[in-house]
Structure formats: C-alpha cells, structure tokens
C-alpha cells in the first residue's frame, strides 16, 4: 500500500507583519498520526506557523493543504476544514458564559447537528478522559488553570478532529499543573492523534515527538527525531538554543 498523502502539507509559506518577516519560505509536511513538536526561541515564528494551519493567521505566499483541502483557496469552506482541526491555546480561551459541559457541546450541537443528548454523552466521556467529569456543571472561572486547559482539550476533541494543534498549552500554567495537562496530551498521542505542538516542554518532546522542528527568525533550521535532535544537533543555533534551555 503506497503511503497516503501527508495530512498537512506546507509549501514555501511566507508571512510578514509589517517589515518583520514572521515566516520566510517555510515548508513542512506532516503525516497522518504523526506527532510533531515545534521548538524555538520566542519570536521565531513557531506559533505563527502553527496558526497558519487552520488559517487563524493568513499567509502572504505559499500553499497549505490540510487533509486534501487547499485552505488558501477561497472556494473551500474554511469553517468545514476547521472542524477537523482542533486547537488548544496558551490562554485556554474557554467560553466563560457557558458551563464546562456546554463548552464541550456548543460546537457539536450548533455545527454538526448533534442532538443535545448525543453531544452531552460524548462530552461526559471526554471529560472522564481528561479527568474532570465532576466539574461538568461549573463555570470555567471556578476551575484551576490546569483544569481549564484540560477542558479546552476536551472541547477541541468534542468535534472529533483529525488533527490537534497545541499553541504553548502549558506556558500559562503554574508549574504544579503542567503535569496534568501533559499527561492528557501523552494519552492522546498514544491513541494515534495527529498532533502539532508548539512548546518549551523538552521532556514532552523527547517522550512523544516523532519529529522535532527547530525554528528561528521565521525559518525552519533543523528537523529530526528527538534522539538526533537532543543528542546530536547540527545547526549552531539549535545547539545554542538547547544549551540555554536544557
């Protein structure tokens, strides 16, 4: 059986913020089921690259194909494509006016036509999975940061996406809560989800990533397996970065 097309294909993508080159001719392909961790110093363009995958960030040039859809083609319904791409944000972004349960069921009921009962049973299963079933009926403001982020992950999963994007999911958390969120992500990885993760958690990258991507100044400088990456980095800037954070 021939290898199917990569589920995400980024080709020669560039983006400017005014005079600043956020992405400079970046290309990256990700296979279905693959776990890719993007690392790099702040301002390196790693979050921008992640956000181009579901078009939260528009690019100036290049091609982005997600699950066979050209997301830069105006004819394609970006909202349909986004339903297949879950996203988890640094700042959780739960809907504060909805209960935890409703945070999970809002999109499935409004967008996929799921019945309330159907959506709720699915939501409860997901809450169980992330370990906060007992908080279903509280409002997000009552939850700790770690709990909120786990709800945010469950919310994204409620749409049964094919791909999950994580934009520094643990950076806003107190240290003691980072573990509970990473545990959920590791569990998800074992179940075969395609994951693209921007993070500073090198332990997670080492344990979970199929490939690690190092970015700086809007360019991909080095791609490799965690073993290659952490034991034998090639690029001088990768070496420097790793020496600073490890």
């Amino acid at each position: 059986m021939p290898d199917s097309d990569p589920i995400i294909r980024i080709e020669n993508v560039s983006k400017h913020f005014g005079a600043l080159k956020a992405l400079n001719n970046v290309s990256l392909s990700i296979e279905s089921g693959e776990k890719v961790v993007i690392i790099g110093p702040s301002g390196s363009g790693k979050s921008t690259l992640l956000r181009t995958i579901n078009r939260l960030e528009e690019v100036d040039a290049g091609t982005i194909i997600v699950d066979g859809w050209d997301i830069r083609n105006a004819g394609n319904n970006i909202n349909k494509i986004r339903m297949e791409v879950g996203m988890v944000f640094q700042s959780f972004n739960l809907f504060p006016h909805k209960t935890v349960l409703r945070n999970l069921t809002l999109a499935p009921t409004k967008l996929k036509g799921e019945s309330r009962a159907e959506a709720e049973s699915n939501a409860m299963r997901l809450l169980d999975k992330v370990g906060i079933r007992d908080k279903a009926d509280v409002y997000p403001a009552k939850l700790s940061g770690g709990q909120q982020q786990r709800v945010a992950i469950a919310r994204a999963l409620a749409m049964s996406p094919k791909i999950m994007l994580f934009d520094e999911p643990t950076s806003a958390l107190d240290p003691e809560m980072i573990g509970e969120v990473l545990d959920v992500m590791v569990k998800m990885a074992r179940e075969g989800m395609t994951m693209v993760v921007v993070t500073h958690e090198m332990g997670f990258a080492r344990e979970v990533a199929d490939r690690v991507v190092f970015m700086d100044h809007g360019e991909i400088l080095e791609v490799g397996t965690p073993a290659h990456f952490f034991e034998d980095p090639q690029h001088p800037r990768t070496k420097k970065f790793l020496s600073q954070i490890l």
């Binding site: 579901n54 939260l56 909202n79 349909k80 986004r82 339903m83 791409v85 879950g86 996203m87 944000f89 700042s91 972004n93 739960l94 809907f95 809002l106 999109a107 409004k110 967008l111 945010a152 919310r155 994204a156 749409m159």
Partner: peptide, 21 residues
C-alpha cells in the same frame, strides 16, 4: 478578549455564529 473569537473560529464557527453564540 480576542482569544474568544479565535477559540470559536478554530472550532468551525463562522463570524456570524461566533458573534451570536
């Protein structure tokens, strides 16, 4: 907060649905 719009859009809500819900 802008994150609210981004969260809704990333789930697949269109701008109108994002505004309403």
């Amino acid at each position: 907060h802008k994150g609210q719009t981004e969260a809704a859009r990333s789930l697949g809500f269109n701008p109108f649905q994002t505004m309403v819900h």
